[in-house]
Design a protein around this nucleic acid. Structure first.
Length: 557
RNA sequence: GUUUCCGUAGCUCAGUAGGAUAGAGCGACCGCCUCCUAAGCGGUAGGCCGUGGGUUCGACUCCCGCCGGGAACACCA
C-alpha cells in the first residue's frame, strides 16, 4: 500500500478539476495548467501536503498568487472527508491537512505485506544490469572497492524492490598489460621463494598479498615451474594467480554480503572474437582510421574529447576496445538499462563509452554511469596514500574486522556517491558504538524484546481498534511508516541508495520517541493491542529497510 | 590549460525536477530510569549555505565569473 502516492494523486486530481472549473466559469484565465508540485513540507505547520500551483499561474493569470489560491480553494469539491483543513499560506501555497486516521490502514497493510512492504511494480519488470566493483584481480579489495560494493549492492536491492529485474555483474579485467605485469611480479616472487636469482619488475605489484599468492601456488604445485621457459612459466603464474585472486575477491565480497549473478571475463571477449568483430563493425561504419600504425576511433565525431586508440601499433587491442565490445555484449543480452558504478578516476571514460554505444546504434541514455568519488583514508590524522602497485592499502577484509560489516555498509551507503569521503579509520573504530547503524538496529532490537514480552498475545489485525492511536508520537510514526514505498521509488528512480539510511534513521527516531511517550504494555486491552500492532509494523518496516542497505536487523543487542 | 565532483553548524554529512523560519548524527551544555532495553528521550547553544554577479513572485538549489580542495586528461586499465 502506497498511501502517500494515493493522496498525492487524489490532490492532483482535485486541483486540476478545480482549475478547469475556475477556467470554465471565467474565475481564472490561463492557457495550460503548469506542472505543479505536491510536496511534503518540512514544517508540520504547513500541513501534510503543499501545492504551489498558484505561484506558477501568477504570470499567466495576471493575478496575485494568494487570490489565485483562493479561487482554487473555492472551486474544490465541497466534501473532501479525508481532509481536516485546507489553508492558504505564505506566498500562496495550498496546504492540505490530511485526516490522521486516513493513514491507519497502512498498519494492517504492512502486517499483511510483511517482507513485501515497500516494494512495488513500478519498474514493470524491466531488465537492469548493474556492474560494480570490477576490481582488477591483481590484488585484494580495498576501501574504494568496498564503497562500490556497498553502493552497487544496495542500488540493486532498491531497483529490485522498485520492480526491476536486476542482474549484478562483475567484469573481470583478466587481459592486457596489467596482467602481464602481474605475471612478472608473480614470477619474481616465485623465484625468490624458491631461492633463485630474480629481478623484480620496475612497476610490479609490491603488495604482500602477491607473496601469499605465490606461497599458495608453491604449496599446491611445488617447484615444477622452475625449470621451464620464462614465458611459459609466466602463463602458468597468471592462470593460477588470477584464479587464486578471484577466489579471494569472491569470498571477500560474499562476506560483505554481495552476491553476483554473473562474473564476466574480459579475456573471453577476446577469445570469442567479439572484440575483433566489434572493431570490424566499427571499421565498416567508418568510425575508425589508421595513423602511426595504430587504429584510431574518431572520438571527436560523437562527443568525445579526442580520438582514441583502439588497436595499438603492435596489433593488440586496447582496454577501451575490449570495453566497447563488453558493453555491446551487455546490450545484446537484452538489458533495458545498464548501470555502471565507476570510480571518479574513470570519469573521462564516460563520454566516450556513451558515444561509442551511440555510434553502434544503441541509446546512450540506456547506459547510466554512477561516478563514485574516491575514498581517502585517514589514519592517525594523516592521509594514507593507497595504491595497489605499492601494496599500501587497507583491505575490505581488514575494514570488516575493524568496524564490522554492518557499520561499514551503513557508513558507505549513507553517503551520496558524489561526495568525496575521508574514512577516518581510528574514528570509525573508536566511534563504533556511536555509529548511526546501532541507533537503527537498537530500535529493531527494542521492538523485538517488547513483542517477546507480550508473547502469547493473539492479535487479529482486522479487529484491532487502530483509531485509538491518536497520540502525536503515534500519528507521526504511522505517517513515517507510510512513506517507505514512496522513499524506495524515489531512491530507485534517482539511483540514490543513500536515501535509505536516512529514512532508516528517521524511522528509528520516530519509534524511539513513541516508545518514550507511549507505554505499550498497558492494562487497557484495546490500546495495548493497537500499540503492539504499531510496534510490529515498525519492526517489519525497519527490517525491510535495513535489508535494502544490506545490514542485519538484530533481535537482541 | 581542458573536463568533472565537492565547498552547508566545532567535526562527518543530508537537503538541489527552484518554495515558506536551512536539517541529522557526533561533539558541547542542561534535564529525564522504583515503569516495556538509557546503545534511549526532551531541551539549549552553534550558520552572511566558499565568494561576486545574473535569471524571478521566490535561489543552498538554475546560469556565468572568481577562490579553495579532489579526480581525469597514455598505443595503462
Amino acid at each position: 500500500m502506497n498511501r502517500i502516492q494515493e493522496i498525492k494523486d487524489r490532490i492532483r486530481g482535485e486541483v486540476i478539476q478545480a482549475l478547469e472549473k475556475a477556467k470554465a466559469t471565467d474565475a481564472l484565465t490561463f492557457e495550460t495548467i503548469p506542472a505543479f508540485a505536491i510536496e511534503v513540507p518540512r514544517d508540520k505547520n504547513h500541513g501534510d501536503f503543499a501545492v504551489n500551483v498558484a505561484m506558477l499561474l501568477a504570470k499567466q493569470a495576471g493575478r496575485p498568487t494568494r487570490e489565485i489560491a483562493q479561487t482554487v480553494q473555492k472551486n474544490l469539491e465541497e466534501e473532501l472527508p479525508w481532509l481536516t483543513k485546507l489553508e492558504i499560506a505564505g506566498p500562496g501555497f495550498l496546504n492540505f491537512f490530511v485526516e490522521p486516521s486516513y493513514f491507519h490502514p497502512v498498519l494492517t497493510a504492512i502486517l499483511a505485506e510483511d517482507q513485501a512492504y515497500g516494494r512495488s511494480l513500478n519498474g514493470a519488470g524491466q531488465k537492469v544490469q548493474i556492474e560494480f566493483v570490477s576490481a582488477n584481480p591483481t590484488g585484494l579489495l580495498h576501501m574504494g572497492n568496498a564503497r562500490g560494493a556497498a553502493l552497487g549492492d544496495s542500488l540493486g536491492n532498491l531497483m529490485a524492490a522498485a520492480g526491476y529485474k536486476v542482474s549484478r555483474e562483475y567484469y573481470i579485467n583478466d587481459a592486457g598489460n596489467q596482467v602481464e605485469n602481474f605475471g612478472k611480479s608473480l614470477e619474481a616472487r616465485y623465484l625468490e621463494q624458491l631461492g633463485q636469482p630474480f629481478e623484480f619488475p620496475e612497476d610490479g605489484y609490491h603488495g604482500e598479498d602477491i607473496v601469499d599468492t605465490v606461497k599458495n601456488i608453491i604449496a599446491a604445485e611445488g617447484d615444477r615451474f622452475l625449470h621451464m621457459e620464462s614465458a611459459l612459466r609466466r602463463e602458468f603464474m597468471i592462470q593460477l594467480g588470477l584464479k587464486e585472486k578471484l577466489a579471494n575477491i569472491r569470498k571477500t565480497l560474499g562476506e560483505f554480503g554481495v552476491q553476483y549473478d554473473v562474473w564476466f571475463s574480459e579475456q573471453s571477449l577476446h577469445d570469442s572474437g567479439e572484440v575483433l568483430e566489434t572493431i570490424n563493425d566499427m571499421k565498416e561504419k567508418d568510425l575508425l582510421f589508421e595513423q602511426d600504425g595504430a587504429l584510431w576511433l574518431r572520438g571527436t565525431a560523437f562527443g568525445g574529447e579526442k580520438d582514441e586508440v583502439m588497436v595499438r601499433a603492435n596489433g593488440v587491442p586496447t582496454y577501451f576496445a575490449g570495453d566497447i565490445a563488453y558493453h555491446r555484449n551487455k546490450f545484446r543480452r537484452g538489458f533495458d538499462l545498464l548501470i555502471n558504478i565507476w570510480g571518479a578516476d574513470h570519469h573521462g571514460h564516460v563520454a566516450r563509452m556513451k558515444g561509442a554505444m551511440g555510434a553502434l546504434g544503441y541509446d546512450p541514455d540506456h547506459l547510466q554511469v554512477i561516478l563514485m568519488q574516491l575514498v581517502r583514508l585517514l589514519k592517525g590524522g594523516d592521509i594514507v596514500k593507497m595504491s595497489k602497485r605499492s601494496g599500501e592499502y587497507v583491505t575490505l577484509t581488514e575494514l570488516m574486522e575493524e568496524v564490522g560489516r554492518d557499520a561499514a555498509r551503513f557508513f558507505f551507503v549513507m553517503r551520496s556517491a558524489d561526495s568525496q569521503m575521508d574514512f577516518d579509520l581510528d574514528l570509525a573504530k573508536s566511534q563504533s558504538a556511536d555509529n548511526p547503524v546501532y541507533y537503527v538496529q537498537y530500535a529493531h532490537a527494542r521492538i523485538h524484546s517488547l513483542l517477546k514480552m507480550a508473547a502469547g498475545e493473539v492479535i487479529d489485525p482486522d479487529k484491532v481498534r487502530l483509531e485509538l492511536l491518536q497520540e502525536p508520537a503515534e500519528i507521526a510514526l504511522i505517517r513515517k511508516l507510510a512513506e517507505l514505498p514512496e522513499e524506495i521509488l524515489q531512491a530507485a528512480q534517482a539511483m540514490e541508495p543513500h536515501r535509505m539510511p536516512r529514512y532508516a534513521m528517521e524511522l528509528a527516531a520516530q519509534f524511539h520517541s513513541f516508545y518514550t511517550d507511549c507505554r505499550c504494555l498497558v492494562e487497557d486491552d484495546e490500546l495495548r493491542k493497537a500499540r503492539l500492532l504499531l510496534s510490529d509494523a515498525t519492526r517489519i518496516t525497519l527490517r525491510n529497510v535495513l535489508s535494502l542497505i544490506g545490514v542485519s536487523a538484530p533481535e537482541r543487542m
